[in-house]
């Protein structure tokens, strides 16, 4: 019985890692890089993440691409809460990681999305190159593979 369960777990893990569907969420220039990742030159479909879903119910991965303003923050929180477990978050770009250049002098920008939602992978650049977003995705897959995070359906 144990052997069967563990092999089923492996199957679940394999299928989950190869179908991390991101949510279509982009607020500024990082969104352009995210678009080019999904296009043919960089082709995120090689990792099974090419399906950008329009609904948070169908998405596994939230890529927070771009500056998060104060007025947008309750909407992001609501999107995150609407996503089904297991859900993962990549903070893409310097603004999403820490506030970036708005950190010290802005009245309207949230200083890092981790003040609102938990973040798995930080990807600080302004904006990150498409290769680095792929790198962040691979790192996330490694993290999930190593630690075996508890999903509800395992």
């Amino acid at each position: 019985m144990k052997i069967i369960m563990s092999s089923i777990e492996k199957l679940y893990k394999w299928s989950r890692l190869n179908s991390l569907w991101p949510l279509t969420y982009a607020t500024s220039c990082c969104g352009i890089e995210m678009m080019s990742v999904s296009a043919s030159n960089y082709d995120i479909a090689r990792f099974g993440s090419e399906v950008f879903r329009g609904s948070p119910r169908q998405a596994d991965l939230l890529i927070v691409a771009g500056t998060l303003t104060l007025k947008m923050s309750p909407i992001l929180l609501r999107l995150y809460e609407q996503m089904a477990e297991p859900k993962y978050v990549i903070a893409m770009g310097a603004c999403a990681c820490s506030g970036g250049m708005y950190r010290n002098s802005s009245y309207s920008v949230v200083k890092g999305v981790d003040t609102i939602i938990p973040v798995d992978i930080y990807l600080p650049m302004c904006p990150p190159k498409p290769e680095s977003l792929i790198d962040a995705l691979i790192k996330l897959r490694k993290k999930l593979n190593d630690k075996n995070p508890g999903g509800r359906f395992v």
């Binding site: 950190r103 010290n104 002098s105 009245y107």
Partner: peptide, 13 residues
């Protein structure tokens, strides 16, 4: 009202 001169921006560090 954030563009007033006497408005103080909250700094984190």
């Amino acid at each position: 009202h954030p563009l007033r001169k006497d408005f103080i921006i909250q700094r984190l560090n």
